[in-house]
Amino acid sequence: MADLEQLKTRTRADYRYILEYRTRWSDNDMYAHMNNSIYNHLYDSVLNAYLIEHCGFDLNTSPQHSRVVHSHNDYFAPISFPACAELALRVNRIGNSSVTYEIALFEKGQEAVKSVGEFVQVFVTRETGRPSPQGMEPNMRRGLERILVKSIPSKL
């Protein structure tokens, strides 16, 4: 993942897929901004929406399903009800059976990023719950490659 200062400069153009979410009154906490747990819920929703829409993933019948093995989030500014959030998704790395996502949350009509998170997901076979020796399904890999952002290695 990029360093914190770099994450604070993210724009919508840094991402390949955006999903809108209308905040709800119940998303706010006692401090009148969206509760931290809601961010993870939304991040999980945007990446699964992408998998279903663009990777042929079916929650009930796909031969593989996924497990989130790592997640974290950096918060830069609050968002609260009533607002429309824009969840921006990209893939930073694809492994044999794992994928590292970066998800940003923007507020519609505002340029500055509100938060940036990371999820690492491992695709496992339904029968064993373990990663397949063949890796993730080809349709899944192709769909994820569409939103893969290849970083340029820094020169020392």
Rank of each mutant, 00 (worst) to 15 (best):
K108V: 00
G109S: 11
M140L: 13
P82T: 08
L144Y: 00
P63R: 06
L47Y: 12
R16S: 06
R130K: 14
H41T: 15
G56C: 01
P138N: 06
E145Q: 13
N92D: 11
R130G: 00
R90I: 00
S26Y: 09
Q6H: 09
R10C: 14
V116R: 12
M136E: 06
S98L: 03
K155G: 08
P131E: 05
G117Q: 03
V46F: 02
Y75S: 03
R130H: 04
G95F: 01
M1P: 11
Q121D: 09
P131H: 08
T100I: 04
V46H: 01
A83R: 12
Y75P: 07
V99P: 03
N60T: 14
V116S: 09
S66P: 11
S115Y: 01
A49M: 09
L87C: 03
I38D: 10
M140T: 07
N40E: 14
A104E: 10
G117N: 02
M136W: 06
T11Q: 13
E102D: 10
M140Y: 01
I152E: 15
A83K: 12
T61F: 07
V68G: 05
F119T: 02
E102P: 04
G56W: 04
L47I: 09
A88C: 01
L59Y: 15
E137K: 12
T100M: 03
V91F: 00
N48S: 14
L51K: 07
N96F: 01
R126V: 01
F106N: 08
K8F: 01
A32C: 12
S71F: 12
M140F: 03
E111Q: 10
L47N: 09
L42Y: 13
V68W: 05
L42V: 07
Y101Q: 04
R67C: 13
I103F: 02
I152V: 14
Y39A: 02
Q6P: 08
S37V: 15
V122I: 05
P133E: 10
I52K: 14
Q134D: 15
M140H: 06
E145T: 00
S80M: 09
S132Y: 07
A85C: 07
L51A: 09
M30D: 11
R146F: 02
Y15V: 09
V124P: 07
V91I: 03
V122F: 10
P133N: 04
S62K: 03
K150I: 11
S62T: 06
N96C: 04
D74P: 10
G56A: 07
Q134P: 05
E20C: 10
N60E: 15
N139Y: 02
S62Q: 02
P153C: 05
L47R: 12
D27Q: 14
Y75V: 04
S98T: 00
S151E: 13
Q121K: 10
V99G: 01
T61V: 03
F57Q: 11
S45C: 11
N35A: 06
